[in-house]
């Protein structure tokens, strides 16, 4: 605990005046999101397009005291019968899992942030909260900008459909307009290198090929924030390199904020500039990528 408090000092602390302003903004954003937290990142274009409040620091993502509690019992109850049995046995809401506890993280625009930690430490939960898929039990998460989530590539693909149809389907789910997809269709296809399989049902694709299409769709826009979660491990070596180049391009040319999760520490060190190490839901360390990775490696 003391360690995590210590490391919190690394995070940028806003001044008190900024703090109040920021909390107002937080409320604003939360109420905006509360109508539908899951509306979509693109919806925020409207906000991002408007002149940005001067009081708003150059943060892409602000995470404040985020706590995430999963109810283990309620996750398994799928039917009324189970529910009644558990109720009678008084086992209901028995165990709680604290997936994240008191996470504070401010990510500035253009930051390339790695997230490291062992399996089950809460990395993906954190990414889901940032992507707006999960709502934190406590605390707030404010995101300024368009997010391209690459959490498990290919969500929203219907494998019965052909690649061509899936590009439109997935594109629409990511918030692209029809005209945008039409304009960029060739780019997507050539990036994924799959001209000849375009009209084949995707169930006949290998998982690597599915990942190619998904990556191509997700990165065809220039997102403000790119979330990459273990996605590069699926493709072959050459495609992995290609993806890395594309991410590097976004970082260098477009100042895209990148959140990067990978079990390959080398990859994190290569791509990221800063990093956070999470262990069992607690922040262990935030700081320069080399320091964090070094400490993380030595902790094993």
């Amino acid at each position: 605990m003391s360690k995590s408090q210590l490391t919190n000092k690394h995070a940028v602390k806003p001044t008190s005046a900024m703090n109040t302003l920021q909390s107002m903004n937080d409320n604003d954003a939360m109420s905006f999101n509360s109508t539908n937290h899951a509306s979509n990142a693109l919806a925020e274009v409207a906000c991002a397009g408007a002149p940005i409040d001067a009081s708003l620091p150059d943060y892409a993502i602000q995470i404040k005291d985020v706590k995430m509690v999963f109810n283990m019992a309620s996750e398994q109850l799928n039917s009324l019968k189970e529910y009644v049995i558990k109720l009678i046995k008084r086992q209901l809401f028995f165990s709680e899992l604290l997936a994240l506890d008191g996470i504070n993280l401010n990510i500035q625009r253009g930051d390339v942030f790695g997230i490291v930690g062992t399996n089950g430490s809460g990395k993906s939960t954190l990414l889901k909260i940032i992507a707006g898929v999960l709502e934190p039990t406590e605390g707030s998460c404010v995101v300024n900008g368009v997010i391209a989530p690459l959490i498990e590539l290919g969500a929203g693909f219907d494998l019965e459909l052909t690649a061509r149809e899936n590009i439109y389907l997935n594109g629409s789910l990511l918030g692209y307009s029809k005209s945008f997809i039409q304009e960029n269709f060739d780019d997507i296809v050539s990036f994924a290198e799959m001209h000849e399989f375009l009209d084949m049902p995707m169930k006949n694709y290998s998982s690597g090929m599915v990942a190619r299409v998904a990556f191509a769709i997700a990165t065809v826009i220039v997102p403000d924030i790119l979330i990459v979660d273990e996605t590069l491990s699926v493709g072959d070596m050459f495609f992995q390199e290609k993806c890395e180049r594309r991410i590097q391009e976004l970082i260098d040319n477009e100042h895209t904020t990148v959140l990067f999760v990978s079990h390959s520490i080398e990859q994190v060190e290569r791509i990221c500039k800063k990093a956070i190490w999470i262990d069992k839901g607690h922040t262990q360390m935030i700081g320069d990528v080399n320091d964090v990775c070094e400490t993380y490696k030595n902790s094993q």
Partner: peptide, 12 residues
């Protein structure tokens, strides 16, 4: 479900 878990969309 697979979609809702991964992409932020209006569930309605």
């Amino acid at each position: 479900a697979p979609l809702i878990k991964k992409i932020r969309v209006n569930k309605a």
